[in-house]
Design a protein around this nucleic acid. Structure first.
Lengths: 146, 146
DNA sequence: TTGAATTACTTGATATATCAAATATAATTA
DNA sequence: TAATTATATTTGATATATCAAGTAATTCAA
């Protein structure tokens, strides 16, 4: 089983891994909810954990540009997963609120997220996963300080 | 040093790693050549290794949709990195040829690619990199067969 | 307390991602 | 060979990515 890797580095493999994982996620998600993307799910999960998060913080957490977040949220509002309210404490910020449909969707998709992770990590031992995480964090830190 | 990870899985870390790596790459590339992207560089590298590659094969290698490849190549032709010629053996396919400017760019950027990889993988031992690659390929294979 | 700087977000422009449909050529089959 | 099927690429529509510039609210400093 040959792995074609045009750059010959593990960095290409990292890219490949995340692309394949995203494909699986999207496929499984769409079996249950047809009009939502992986990233939009991530937005819901994050908001569900921390309802007071700002768009800028959200952007950092999902590795996206602020402008992208603005537009992703616009679409999620349009599709009635979120509503935007005014943050009275700081009117620059917008308060993002998960709608009932959003909540229902989280409920529907939570088992899917678990399945996705389990699928991807099947056969990896806990210590292998920890090691993987450690090595990746080393790469992240190398890149950040570069 | 806390790692915020909203999903609590290594899959998020994979995403983070590749995003940070791409940022470094883009930054270093743009110091030398201002109007080219990481992916366009990858196209040049791949074509330089194998000039007979089709767009579909290219799409697979750089993990993109065929339509994206069409448009990326259009732009690269417009910027005079590539030229499109007719493949007389199969007129459906297009023959992609690296221009003189493209060749010069490859020469300029080759040391940058090496630097990028070295930067990202700094401090990782060979066997760690191999292990990383192995674990990632396990994930890839899990996702592909899912 | 006012003016300057900062912050949060939006908007515009362009590139890219993705899917579906369209086009053109090639290969296969009845 | 004519009709069908398959392949390679393109195009259209919409979403997202990215940068720069713009807007509005907040904070800071003289």
């Amino acid at each position: 089983m040959k792995h074609k890797n045009p750059t010959g580095t593990v960095l290409y493999t990292i890219e490949q891994a995340i692309k394949e994982y995203r494909k699986v996620c999207q496929k499984n998600i769409q079996k249950i909810v047809s009009d939502i993307t992986v990233d939009q799910c991530l937005v819901l999960i994050i908001l569900n954990e921390n309802s007071k998060i700002s768009q800028i913080e959200m952007a950092k957490l999902i590795f996206k540009d602020n402008a992208s977040v603005t537009r992703i949220i616009e679409l999620m509002v349009k599709k009635d997963y979120l509503s935007r309210e005014i943050n009275e404490l700081d009117k620059r910020k917008s308060k993002l609120v998960i709608t009932e449909k959003g909540q229902k969707t989280i409920g529907l998709l939570t088992p899917i997220f678990k399945l996705n992770r389990k699928t991807a990590l099947d056969g990896l031992a806990i210590d292998e996963i920890e090691l993987l995480d450690k090595l990746l964090h080393k790469i992240i830190s190398n890149c950040k300080t570069a």
